[in-house]
Design a binder for these strands. Structure first.
Lengths: 194, 194
DNA sequence: GTCTATAGGAAGATAGAC
DNA sequence: GTCTATCTTCCTATAGAC
């Protein structure tokens, strides 16, 4: 076991993640992954024997873990709805670098690799996220159906604002969306829960 | 000049478009493009001497033309706001095959090809679309700022609903979004314009 | 655990027959 | 205008030295 400046597992995944997020699965060539991690192809294969697909899978798992710990857990907490939402907004702003970084769930859901080895994880993440948001909306007084609907809208607006921001070359739509999240999920003025 | 069952320019572009829309730029290999069009690589190069990038460009131009003729023109028309919106909804449903087909503006805006030969077209299409929607919202009584805001939301929801639909493997979010467009753009009950 | 070197194949692109 | 055949480059993946 060598010592020296071996790259940490965390930094490694972070580097790979950056590439997958802005090039997509097919666009993420081993050369780009080399450049982003500072590791040579052969070294990447040492850590990920099953190659690029395994790299993408571990990046996705890492994102899943981040989502659960940093977003879903706070959302399911017992703080007031507004506080839970504010916590999520803060994390999202960091995670997407204020709108400059794309979402893995978008970038990995096309990959023509036999209809998708990532599909299942992606679907589960979307569903868990919507569920967590629904819980907040219900706690804020919405009925189940309304809560679900509002939550799906927030997820769609998140994805859409990232696509739109990238498309027009400005992070403004994403940042505006972040600020609008509370009003998307919480009841409008004067509507109190029972 | 041979006769026979030569593929029409329209069908050709349609075939290429399908591939770019569900595989993205990097994922759209010449083999896939061959399969989708029935033309061999060399024949594709005969029609598109600059190769794949030109194919993507012409597909994008064709989408732009579709957008202008089928969506922007009706939106800028003189029919009642609700009718103009309904016309757009109908076209969108066809164009995205009820949510089964992705949007070029999303799928082509990552391509790592020197920061994007498509960026300019994509930005212009987004902007033109938002402008057209804004015109409708203003005609329905919204002030300029509100109209712009609502229009951007519709575009984000469109993109987001497609991403989300693909992610969870169901077209339901897209179809629900389509039905919600009028209420997104038009003033809510009882709020009359001056 | 990381590297250089290279195998093996698929990708984008071209030449030239028909 | 379309094809088969070929070229070159890039990609994924492996072998083996250190």
């Amino acid at each position: 076991m060598g010592r020296k400046a071996e790259i940490s597992q965390e930094e490694l995944i972070a580097g790979l993640s950056r590439v997958f997020r802005d090039a997509g699965y097919e666009g993420a060539s081993l050369s780009l992954l080399e450049a982003a991690t500072g590791l040579k192809k052969a070294s990447l294969y040492h850590r990920f024997p099953k190659g690029k697909e395994q790299m993408a899978n571990e990046v996705l798992e890492s994102a899943q873990q981040w989502l659960e710990e940093q977003v879903l857990r706070p959302l399911h907490g017992s703080a007031p709805p507004k506080a839970r939402i504010d916590a999520m907004v803060k994390r999202l702003d960091q995670f997407y670098s204020g709108g400059k970084q794309a979402c893995l769930l978008n970038m990995l859901s096309s990959s023509r690799i036999h209809e998708g080895p990532f599909s299942k994880s992606i679907r589960k993440m979307f569903e868990a996220w919507v569920d967590a948001l629904s819980a907040v909306a219900r706690d804020a007084g919405a009925d189940a159906k309304t809560a679900q609907w509002k939550s799906q809208r927030v997820i769609m607006l998140l994805q859409g604002s990232l696509v739109y921001s990238r498309g027009i070359g400005s992070t403004q739509p994403f940042r505006r969306f972040l600020k609008s999240i509370p009003s998307e999920l919480l009841p409008s003025e004067g509507v109190a829960a029972s």
